[in-house]
Amino acid sequence: MSTQSTNNNTNNPTSDVVTSSVPFTLKRWNLVGIWSWDVAHDVCAICRTALSESCLRCQAASNLQECIIVWGTCNHSFHNCCMSQWVKQRAQCPLCQTDWVINRIGQ
């Protein structure tokens, strides 16, 4: 189809001709998508709550602030709230025990 319309395009620069040459012209596209965290595990290993939801602490406090996710260089991910508590005691990833270095923080 694209070949056809491109051909038409080159041959007939006016859009009127372009549109009438094919049975249908797309006028509008409303895209619906969902986003989720790009994580390997769905559940935070620290608070055992789904990463798609706020951490247990934020839920209990009915915290309206967004509870974000943090990834280590090991690519394991946790709630940022949970991990910041965790590293106070030991600076290692709870899942693979490698030294915890933040790779990225979700936005």
Binding site: K27, N30, V32, W35, I69, W71, R104, I105
Partner: peptide, 21 residues
């Protein structure tokens, strides 16, 4: 704009408008 996210398309809710020529 957003790090650490992934997008999934929901075709069943997406829609469009066509013109008949």
């Amino acid at each position: 704009k957003h790090t650490g996210r992934k997008l999934i398309l929901l075709h069943q809710y997406s829609k469009g408008e066509l013109q008949i020529n």
